[in-house]
Measured scan of single mutants.
Amino acid sequence: MQRGKVKWFNNEKGYGFIEVEGGSDVFVHFTAIQGEGFKTLEEGQEVSFEIVQGNRGPQAANVVKL
């Protein structure tokens, strides 16, 4: 599992990016966020996640808020 901080997340569009220290930013879609109810992330929030290869490159999967 990787760890990072949410760079930004757009609730209306349902996606954003996670900053990884020493690495490239990783795309995150709301469907990758674990948990119940409305799935969103806050700027600066710490998360753990896996990186998978999506249609447009690397993206976050199994995102857990820390």
Results as ranks from 00 to 15, higher is better:
V26A: 08
N11F: 08
Q53H: 08
E19F: 08
P58S: 10
F17V: 04
G23L: 12
N11Q: 04
F30G: 06
E19D: 13
V47G: 01
Q45E: 12
K5S: 10
S24A: 12
V52W: 08
K39M: 04
Q2Y: 13
E43Y: 11
A32L: 02
E36H: 08
E19P: 02
Q59M: 12
K39G: 04
V64R: 12
I33N: 01
E21Q: 12
V6M: 05
A61Q: 14
F17H: 04
E21M: 08
Q45I: 06
V63Q: 00
Q59F: 15
S48Y: 14
L41H: 01
G37L: 05
E46R: 11
E42R: 13
G4V: 00
E21H: 15
G35Y: 07
S24P: 14
F30T: 05
E21R: 14
F9Q: 00
E42I: 08
E43R: 15
D25A: 05
G22Q: 09
E19I: 11
G35W: 04
V52N: 11
F27L: 03
E50A: 07
F27S: 03
V63F: 00
V64I: 12
G14A: 04
G16I: 00
G35S: 09
G37M: 05
G22L: 11
E43T: 15
Q59T: 09
F38P: 08
V6K: 00
F9T: 02
F9H: 01
I18R: 00
V6F: 01
G16K: 00
Q59K: 15
A32H: 05
G57I: 03
A61N: 07
K7Q: 07
G14M: 03
H29N: 03
A32Y: 03
V52P: 01
K65L: 08
V64G: 09
G44C: 13
H29L: 02
N11K: 08
K39T: 05
K39E: 05
N11G: 07
H29A: 01
I33S: 02
V28W: 01
E50Q: 13
S48I: 10
G23E: 12
A60D: 00
V63I: 05
G23N: 07
N10T: 05
I18N: 01
G14E: 02
K39N: 06
T40M: 09
K39Y: 04
Q2W: 13
N62I: 02
W8L: 03
V64P: 01
G54Q: 09
V64H: 07
I51W: 09
F27K: 04
E12Y: 14
E12C: 12
G22Y: 07
E19L: 14
Q34W: 08
I33K: 02
G57M: 04
G44F: 05
V20I: 11
T40L: 06
